[in-house]
């Protein structure tokens, strides 16, 4: 029972911070909201007993990605400084309607559908198997993703490099 209360707290935290990301009037605040939301998701992984994934989530999102985003924010700070320009585009109201509709559809289908329960005891996820599956069943995919990452890193360097000509 305590777990479920905790779950609800986490869920509310995630939804609230996610809303903060998309409605906040300050980009820095939005970035911090995102950081919290991603950490909350890591908590969700703990509820799902996939602790390893929670760790990965915190390390990569909470660490690397969030830092990267903050860095980029600083690099692209508007030169105008004090003048606040709206962070939302002109189609924001329509976007709200569309998003609410989408949320309704998704939640409705999640709740209405009778999901099959194939696993008897969801509390015991055999985490030790993750490396086996990752390196055996998904070996080729793993290598491809590695190459993708490499290419992305090289591409990012080339794109962001300060060229002499500029």
């Amino acid at each position: 029972m305590a777990v479920e209360v905790l779950w609800w707290l986490f869920a509310i935290l995630i939804v609230g911070t996610a809303l903060g990301v998309v409605v906040s009037r300050s980009v820095i605040h939005a970035a911090i909201f995102l950081l919290v939301a991603l950490a909350g998701i890591a908590g969700m992984y703990v509820f799902l007993t996939v602790e390893f994934l929670a760790l990965v989530q915190l390390l990569i999102y909470g660490g690397a990605v969030a830092v990267l985003v903050l860095l980029a924010l600083m690099l692209t700070r508007q030169a105008t400084g004090g003048e606040r320009i709206s962070l939302n585009g002109p189609q924001a109201p329509f976007a709200a309607i569309a998003a609410i509709g989408l949320a309704a559809i998704l939640v409705a289908s999640a709740v209405v559908t009778t999901w099959p329960r194939l696993v008897d005891d969801p509390d015991a996820v055999p985490l030790g198997r993750i490396s086996e599956v990752l390196f055996e069943d998904f070996g080729a995919t793993f290598i491809l993703v590695s190459i993708l990452l490499l290419v992305a890193v090289v591409g990012a360097i080339i794109l962001a490099r300060q060229e002499d000509a500029e």
């Binding site: 585009g89 189609q91 329509f94 976007a95 569309a98 998003a99 509709g101 989408l102 559809i105 289908s109």
Partner: peptide, 16 residues
């Protein structure tokens, strides 16, 4: 954003 909006609306229509 307009294109993204079009995609979203399309998905909603398809889902409905």
């Amino acid at each position: 954003p307009n294109y993204a909006m079009a995609i979203t609306l399309g998905i909603i229509v398809l889902a409905l």
